[in-house]
Nucleic acid binder design. Structure first.
Lengths: 232, 232
DNA sequence: ATTGCAGGATTGTTGAACAATCTTTACGGT
DNA sequence: ACCGTAAAGATTGTTCAACAATCCTGCAAT
């Protein structure tokens, strides 16, 4: 089927490039969604703030119709909440939300770890651990938080499942909302550096079962700490 | 805080009614999304068919802008696929998709079963089993398929997790796409009636651990059968 | 057969419009 | 001063019409 010249391969490469290019550009609505999502995740848009369509659209440089599409997307991601006839508001997660997110994480993360398909990138785990160490040494609290999220994303990526990856990304975005609502989030992530390191070590040694168990305990502890820091 | 008259309760009831009313009506885009989703799930819109915005919008009785919002939602649900500058098409699931959906189901369903929170409705399981028996007795193949889906939805509902429920609904919609692409889907679901019954029995007896194990095996078998029936 | 090129169709995106609904302000009664 | 209410103003939900960019089709020319 394939030609003797390298043509087929070259064509495939070009096709890939085109696909990547389109993925980068994406639609206007996706870019708008990303813009808003980033602001929320970054903590610039706090829980409870209302988002007026007209002004927001103008700020992002997109039409109100397009923005609307973006906002619907974010509502589906549970980052925003729609209040009929009153617009969308940045979600203010309840304790129930924290418990539910952790319920899902406690199921997905250890399971993904045990799954461990060849597609899964083990090195990414170690990388995230290092990233955390560097950030901690530099005293950059936000970077430590980011590294921690990268670690957990890498854990789920071990399963090599696009659907799990997508859901994990959503859960991590929700987690950012939790953090921004904590009273004193400063030192929340730091203690987990050590545990991440232990878990990565176990995975590298091939002992996924104990790694998964450790991770489960870890998550249970983190959940309680978060509920504590959030419950009024 | 509560008044001696039943006023507070009455107000709360009215508020509930309003909320329900709004949930039923929802937005125009949500209704459009449901209309298209139903057609795909029902099998009236087959994999690969292109969906022209103008005609579709007219058919549903909604503006092109609103339809667009609905289509984006369905793309996010993986029921449709967007081909840039060429519109949306009903997704044609690959074997990889089947494997990934089952990978997620094998993780989520047994875990939800083990979770077993008080919120979870055990009776719903038995109900779905009965529904399947009735449908089978009536020789209604589609109804057997529906009952089977209700069973698995009930399994996940045992965890009492809104987020898991939402994901399961998406996965089940994707499953419908798989079925409609099978060569001979007629007798696919029937053999699972028995297994569903066994699992429900175990759960009712409180032996969730073995129920979960049985379910996991069941899912692994179903996956292979589906891949077989789909692989060209 | 393949290439090049008009012409038509469809998508991506915008802007303006309008009814329905919310919010605010101002007003008048008590 | 307090309360409810009515008018005014702002915002949302939704539609329509438009237009550039892109894709598809058929046809002619090589």
């Amino acid at each position: 089927m394939s030609s003797p010249t390298g043509l087929d391969a070259a064509l495939a490469t070009l096709d890939d490039a085109r696909r990547r290019h389109r993925a980068v550009m994406s639609t206007s609505a996706d870019r708008a969604a990303k813009a808003v999502r980033d602001q929320v995740v970054e903590g610039l848009l706090r829980s409870g703030t209302r988002l007026p369509e007209e002004r927001l659209a103008a700020a992002i440089g997109v039409s109100r119709n397009t923005l609307r599409e973006a906002l619907s997307q974010l509502v589906a991601e549970r980052i925003l909440v729609r209040e009929p006839n009153r617009g969308v508001v940045v979600a203010t997660p309840s304790v129930d939300d924290v418990r539910d997110v952790y319920r899902v994480r406690r199921i997905i993360e250890p399971a993904a770890m045990r799954e461990g398909r060849p597609t899964g990138d083990v090195a990414a785990l170690a990388l995230a651990v290092d990233e955390g160490r560097v950030a901690d040494a530099a005293g950059d609290v936000d970077a430590v938080a980011s590294a921690n999220q990268h670690f957990h994303r890498a854990v789920v990526a071990l399963a090599g499942s696009p659907r799990l990856d997508a859901q994990m990304d959503q859960l991590l975005a929700e987690m950012r909302l939790f953090f921004h609502q904590m009273v004193r989030p400063d030192q929340f992530h730091r203690p987990y550096l050590e545990q991440n390191s232990d878990i990565a070590e176990l995975v590298l040694q091939g002992d996924r079962a104990t790694a998964a168990e450790l991770l489960a305990d870890y998550l249970a502890g983190a959940e309680e700490e978060l509920v504590e820091a959030l419950g009024p």
